[in-house]
Design a protein around this nucleic acid. Structure first.
Lengths: 148, 148
DNA sequence: TCGAATCTTCAGAGATTTCTGAAGATTCGG
DNA sequence: CCGAATCTTCAGAAATCTCTGAAGATTCGA
C-alpha cells in the first residue's frame, strides 16, 4: 500500500476511518507533518495537489470543530493556519456527541415501549451503558489534561 | 423528520452515524425493539421490507462482531437471532481499534520525522494522547462490567 | 477608492458505496 | 436420498457522497 510509504497519508487514512472527509483529513495531516509553524491555504493546495475549493472547505470545517486555528500573520495577506494545542482532546469530545445521541435514542425507545416490556428492558441496559460513558468520558479527558 | 416518529428508525440512524451500514443498523434496531426473544431472518425481512440478501449480510456482519448471536431453535428449520448480552461494551471495544490505529499512525510519523523535529513534537503529543486512551478505555469498560 | 491577490461557494462530473434480486448452495424433515 | 424451505453470494442498478473548477466575493496595500 502506498500509504505505508507516506506517513502523512497513512495518518490521513486513519482519520478517514474515524469519519473525517478524505480531503479534510489530508489537510489536517499536512498541518501536523509540516516543519513550519503554520501553513497557508496556498501552500496546502500546492503540496497536496488538490483544488483550492477543497482546501477552503476543509480549513473551514477543521476550524469550526476546533482542531486548527487561524493565526494572525502580520505582513501577509494570506491566512495562516496551525494545528491547535490540545486538539486531540477536542476531537475526542466531538466524538462523544455520539454517545449522547445513543443515550437519547435509547431513552426515546423506552418512552415508546414502556419500561417493563421486553424491548424496554433491553433498551434500559443500553441507556444505562451510554449514560455511564456520558458521565465518565469527560472525566477521563480531564484527567489527561491535568496530568500534562 | 419521520425518524422521530419511529424510535427504532431513530436508533438505526444513530448507529449509522457511528459508522454502521444503514441496513445493518436497521436489522440491529429490529432485534432491539422486538417484544419477542428472538427473530428469524424471514421475520426481519418482512418487517423492514428489505431484501433477504441485505438481511443475510447484516446478520452475518453483526454476528461476526459479536453484537448478536444465533440461538439454537429446536423444531424450526430457520435460524433464530438475538441481541447479545453485553453487546454495547463489545461495540465500544470495536471502536477502540481506531484508537490503536491512531496511535500507530503517530508512531510511524515520529519514526519518519524524528523525535526532535517540529512535526515530531506535534506527533509525540498525539502519540501520548492515544496511548493514554488505549490504556484507560479498557479499564473504563471493565469498571462498567464490574458494577453490573 | 482601485486592483491584484486570495478566499469562498456551489453546480455538476465523477467516484464510491449500498442495496436488490435472482441464481445457486445448503439444510433438514420425511 | 429427495425436495421444499431457507440462506448466501454477487453482479450490476441505484443512491449517495466527494471533489473540482470557475465565477463571484472579499481583503488590503497603495
Amino acid at each position: 500500500m502506498a500509504a505505508l510509504r507516506d506517513p502523512a497519508e497513512h495518518l490521513a487514512l486513519a482519520l478517514t476511518q474515524g469519519g473525517m472527509q478524505r480531503m479534510t483529513a489530508r489537510v489536517l495531516a499536512a498541518l501536523l507533518f509540516t516543519e513550519q509553524d503554520t501553513l497557508t491555504a496556498g501552500e496546502i493546495t500546492e503540496s497536496l495537489t488538490i483544488s483550492s475549493g477543497s482546501v477552503s472547505t476543509a480549513l473551514k470545517s477543521l476550524t469550526s470543530v476546533g482542531l486548527i486555528e487561524k493565526v494572525p500573520a502580520p505582513g501577509s495577506r494570506r491566512e495562516h493556519f496551525r494545528f491547535r494545542e490540545g486538539a486531540w482532546a477536542t476531537l475526542m469530545s466531538e466524538q462523544n456527541q455520539l454517545v449522547k445521541v445513543m443515550r437519547e435514542a435509547a431513552e426515546q425507545g423506552i418512552t415508546a415501549t414502556g419500561e417493563d416490556s421486553v424491548a424496554g428492558r433491553r433498551l434500559g441496559e443500553m441507556r444505562d451503558f451510554y449514560d455511564y460513558l456520558w458521565r465518565e468520558l469527560p472525566a477521563l479527558i480531564d484527567r489527561w489534561k491535568a496530568q500534562r
